[in-house]
Design a protein around this nucleic acid. Structure first.
Lengths: 333, 333
DNA sequence: GGACTGTTTGTTAGCGGTAACATTCCGGAA
DNA sequence: TTCCGGAATGTTACCGCTAACAAACAGTCC
């Protein structure tokens, strides 16, 4: 009801400068045919009344909001959060503002999408998506550009991703090269595409090496889960290495193994995924697969803005991940 | 120029339902005097054309955006990020959307504030502020409600905070009780109010105990910095305990001490601050001070919305932090 | 039956911009 | 001087909604 205090409008500026409101508009939009003296007058008036344009009114008139919606899963985790920061930064540099909605396990992603549309998003970006998020976005794909930041094939939509499969293979190959033959996998939640890709690549690489794989354990990304797994899981007794789907769980696994009386890497090797800034300071420092999350965000903006403009976008190559070898892995004892 | 595809408006709905556009508006806003049959007709029409209201137009007409701006420092860190999630969640529940701008070390916070205002924020929240952010917000305090999530006194503005001083005292007292007398402090950046509060409380508590304090080292919140400090700092030779300003740095410190040949807690005790979800899985698990960041965000929303409505807001009490004792601290050897 | 309620609906005028068209201004060519 | 054409400015309409007022339509009461 109340309404905030009214701010000066173009008409106030126009009156003060002795011109029409449209002239003020032209000055603001750098229209070519404005006399230099007029422009100066207007600018002075703008400063005098401390005018700022009203983005809502402009959006209404132009039918352009310059706003990009981001639906983000697991915003509390390092990877998604870092990607979001990169996205935000790049978008701002291009004159777009971003409207981010984070969806948790229990939230309905469709509600998030709806909110983004209500706020007038011109395009949508889905970061680190779980399958439900993907589906809730499918319905709007014909109305506006949608980009998904994730592994997984995508014939119909835009995608930007670090190559999860390649990353997982790097991890497994590293362990194979060290002589490990019984390599377990502690996976991420099964409704996360990235988790799925890592799991599949692990299975596949082991199959290629002619090794049997045991059923992976499905975790929840948290260190707590990792601890439980490391402390209790019976299968660990027979294995010499574990490929863990993210660094946080890996930290927990190391802790759990420690409490169980197993030493890393002497008794068992651990490889993580992501390369969080903290991972190099675990005890022992964690061998892991680095992904450039920030670049992910930046690249997403490039693609989405091209799509908004209607420019044909070359489907970006997958970003290559990188193996970082530290002390949590060693040759099979 | 281009403009997205035009979506159906109230007029389209009105025409289809055979009523005036204003009646449609009334249905949408739950105006009391609408005949039930009419409401049904309108709702059916809304569904038929798949109408969604245009938030920009509504904002223009009402001069209300229902948007809250958040300026966030250190969005990459656990604490601020978690607070932001809590804030976002609570705001959405109240029917507000949040526009978050994250400012890094090098960014100009004033630019962030300006963007938030341009987007029509009705109120501003500053999370985990460094001093420059606070100053850039001071200028707009008379135009709209501003709330700062931080320690530090605040006669003029709204504040919500975990009691940093109390937290730091808990940490120091714990160490004193264990018999430590030479307690170092690795602080956060000096332009962070929270870091400052922790540092001052450390100094003060030691002074009260009649103990001398050595000049604290100023860190940057990162584990890398903590490692360097733990590995190299000469003063550590004389100390038996270190109070570290956050958990990430504490992780690095433990690593650095380890590489230096010092054992935690046998040779030296470590207390952190924040209680990140990972901290209980450090080796050794970290004794630290827990802050409820999520509650911080929720509480902020409550206060800001009250302020927007013009309701007098009782200045909230400081949220009490909690000491979590784990294995990184032990009685003085 | 007519004036008097209150409920339900319609009409009109903005909110603050931009787009499209109309107009004025000006220097140069005829 | 007159006329022309582009540059500079003004006018009007409209984007999609809400607020304020006006109108129509009951039902009540005397």
């Amino acid at each position: 009801m109340a309404g905030r205090q009214r701010k000066p409008s173009m008409y106030d500026v126009a009156a003060l400068a002795g011109v029409s409101h449209q002239t003020v508009s032209r000055v603001l939009n750098n229209h070519p045919s404005i006399r230099e003296t007029t422009r100066a007058k207007v600018i002075r008036a703008i400063e005098q009344v401390n005018y700022t344009p009203n983005a809502m009114a402009r959006a209404l008139a132009t039918n352009r909001t310059h706003r990009i919606g981001v639906l983000i899963d697991g915003a509390g985790h390092y990877g998604p959060n870092t990607a979001l920061r990169g996205f935000e930064e790049a978008a701002r540099a291009e004159g777009y503002s971003v409207d981010a909605v984070s969806v948790g396990e229990t939230d309905d992603p469709a509600a998030g999408v709806e909110q983004l549309l209500l706020q007038g998003a011109e395009a949508l970006c889905v970061i680190a998506p779980r399958i439900p998020s993907l589906e809730s976005v499918r319905a709007v794909m014909r109305d506006l550009p949608v980009l998904v930041v994730t592994a997984g094939s995508a014939p119909d939509r835009l995608t930007v991703a670090v190559d999860q499969r390649a990353g997982a293979r790097l991890a497994v190959e590293h362990l194979l090269a060290l002589g490990h033959r019984d390599i377990l996998h502690l996976a991420g939640p099964e409704d996360w595409l990235d988790a799925l890709a890592r799991l599949e690549a692990w299975e596949q690489r082991l199959a290629e090496a002619g090794l049997a794989t045991r059923a992976p354990v499905i975790g929840d990304w948290t260190a707590d889960f990792g601890y439980d797994y490391g402390y209790r899981s019976p299968e660990i007794d027979h294995a010499t290495a574990i490929f863990v789907a993210n660094d946080q769980m890996a930290l927990g696994v190391i802790h759990g193994l420690h409490d169980r009386g197993l030493r890393v890497p002497q008794d068992i090797s651990i490889v993580g995924f992501d390369d969080n800034p903290e991972s190099r300071h675990f005890l022992p420092p964690l061998t892991t697969v680095r992904q450039d999350f920030h670049a992910l965000g930046t690249l997403s903006v490039t693609q989405l803005i091209a799509a908004i403009r209607g420019v044909p976008v070359p489907q970006a190559d997958l970003i290559a991940p990188e193996l970082v070898v530290r002390q949590s892995t060693a040759a099979r004892g």
